[in-house]
Structures are given as C-alpha cells and as structure tokens.
C-alpha cells in the first residue's frame, strides 16, 4: 500500500483518480484503518487529506461556518462559537467514540464512511449542512442528505472528496439538538439517533424545522413529515405527539443485537420528540 500526504486538493484528486488502482481518501483513519486491518478493504493507495488547509480548518464569517472535512471531533468541541451556534451538531461530533477517537474522527469520514448509524449525519441533515465536493470535474455543492446512498455507499464519483461542510449562522430564535440511544453510556453504536433544528417566530410558532433520523434505515433520513407536524404550530404536547408519530412512521429499521425493529421504531419517536423539545428550549434561550 502506498501512503501519500497531499498538500493541495488538486494533488489529492489527482492521486485518487489514478485509473486501475483502488485508492482511498484518509482523514482520521478511525474507520479506514480498522477496515484495512480486518481485510474488509485493501486499498493500493491511501491519500491523506489532513494537511490540506481547507480540510483542516474551521472558518467563521458573516454568512456562517465552513468546517474542514478532516477537522477532528476534539477541535469541533473546542470551538466556542460553533458550540454556541450549533450545539446539537457539536454534541453529535463529540459523541463519536472515546477521547482517543475524538482526537482523529472527522465529519468527512463520518459521512463518507456511510454507516447508517453515523452520529453526525442526522445532526448535519437537521442543520441543513451543505457539502462542498471537489473532484476531477471541479467543485459542486451537495446537501448532506444526498451524499450517502446506502450502507457503505455514497454518491461521490471517482476522485471526488468532500472538502468542507457549510452551515449558516444560528438564526434568531433557533436551536438544534441531537440525541442518541446506545446500550451503555459510552463507546457504542447508535440504536437510534435523532437530530432536530427549528426556528420559532415572535408568537412562538414554529416557522422552520428539519428532522434527521439515524440507524432506522439504510441511510440517515430527512423526515419532512415530522417537520411538517410542527410547522406553523406551537411546539406543545399536541404538535410533538404528531412529530413523534411521523418519526415512527418514517422508521424502517432492522433487528440486530442492539435492538429489535419494534424497539427502534418506538425509540425513534421518543428521541425525535425529546430532541425537538431541547431544540425548542434552545430556540427560546432557556437552554444553551
């Protein structure tokens, strides 16, 4: 196996596009190196993205945030402004693995590894994150929910990589939250994950809402039926019950050792409701 550390995106794309060669992008390696070791993948060349400036920095501007695809969970957690604007996304990033894994695990790797249970994907979906994808054909912008197409599968073409994720600033009276259930308190894979971002108006009615669900389908889901349950309404027991129902209806999970299908469907409703309640409190400024 060849190892290359790319200095520029152009260099990385060229190295990844070599025909007739199994090439892989490398960010934190917390998925890829475990897969190489187990023999599940056998790349002939890995291209390290971490030294490319766009990939390893977080930029804040008037229009929002640009989070480099290989920035680690630890760095995301240490960014006070990102924490203030998108606490739910930061929580999701910080839930990945242990302190050791946090030192390396990136958003780009979490999304592009395409696990149905990846923690940051529902939170990124809720936050309307846009991926800046670069490749041999230039740069294109892709909503995060369009990257993953199935377990281990993405819509990225040969040589394409995610350079950064773009988020708006937090709008007035807005909040986001991500909650997951795992069988123990640390170091496990989500049974269900739920991300919600919402905005309230002056009359406390919900005027914008996005709900993302993880681990209940082959890919994380953007559940518009669940957001529709809140839109134009006050966030109260009645509207939250409708959201819970819609989240349950959207879930089509599998049975496995972490939970049965029925259990996951129920938990999807409960977590979506709790995440929406927390997002609402944040939107009202009652909870950071």
């Amino acid at each position: 196996m060849e190892y290359h550390s790319a200095r520029t995106a152009e260099e990385a794309i060229e190295l990844l596009t070599e025909t007739g060669m199994d090439t892989r992008a490398l960010a934190g390696g917390t998925d890829l190196l475990a897969q190489i070791r187990s023999g599940r993948v056998r790349p002939q060349r890995v291209v390290d993205l971490k030294k490319i400036p766009e990939f390893h920095s977080i930029e804040e501007s008037e229009s929002g945030f640009q989070i480099g695809a290989s920035v680690s969970g630890a760095e995301i957690g240490e960014h006070p402004s990102l924490r203030a604007h998108w606490p739910g996304l930061v929580e999701a990033a910080e839930l990945i693995g242990s302190t050791q894994i946090q030192g390396r695990a990136s958003l780009g790797g979490n999304v592009c590894n395409a696990s149905p249970a990846a923690d940051t994907v529902p939170a990124l979906i809720a936050a309307s994150a846009i991926c800046s994808v670069i490749g041999p054909g230039g740069r294109r912008e892709v909503p995060v929910e369009e990257i993953v197409t199935g377990p281990g599968q993405t819509s990225l073409k040969l040589g394409e990589i995610v350079a950064h994720f773009r988020l708006s600033r937090r709008l007035k009276n807005s909040g986001d939250a991500y909650l997951r259930l795992i069988p123990r308190s640390e170091m496990d894979i989500a049974v269900v994950g739920a991300g919600v971002a919402l905005t309230l108006d002056e009359d406390d009615l919900c005027v914008a809402c996005r709900v993302g669900l993880g681990a209940v389908a082959p890919t994380a889901l953007l559940v518009s039926e669940a957001s529709n349950a809140l839109l134009g309404r006050a966030v109260n027991d009645a509207s939250l019950a409708d959201l819970e129902e819609a989240a349950r209806a959207a879930a089509r999970p599998i049975d496995d050792k972490r939970g049965t299908r029925d259990y996951r469907i129920r938990v999807a409703g409960v977590l979506a409701r709790r995440a929406a309640t927390l997002a609402m409190k944040r939107a009202r400024g009652l909870d950071k």
Binding site: L26, L33, S98, T99, R104
Partner: peptide, 27 residues
C-alpha cells in the same frame, strides 16, 4: 485490540491523545 476499542496503545500525537493502532507510521 488493534481496532481502537481498548486504548492500550494510547499515545500523544502532536498534542492529541490517539490510538497508535489507528495511525499509520508514515503519518
């Protein structure tokens, strides 16, 4: 374990705690 689960291989890499089993030597 060699898979990032046990922490026996913990080292500080450029100031960050990481699992040495999940870092390539070339890095």
């Amino acid at each position: 374990c060699g898979t990032g689960d046990c922490g026996a291989c913990s080292v500080i890499f450029d100031g960050r705690l990481v699992c040495a089993c999940l870092v390539l030597a070339a890095e």
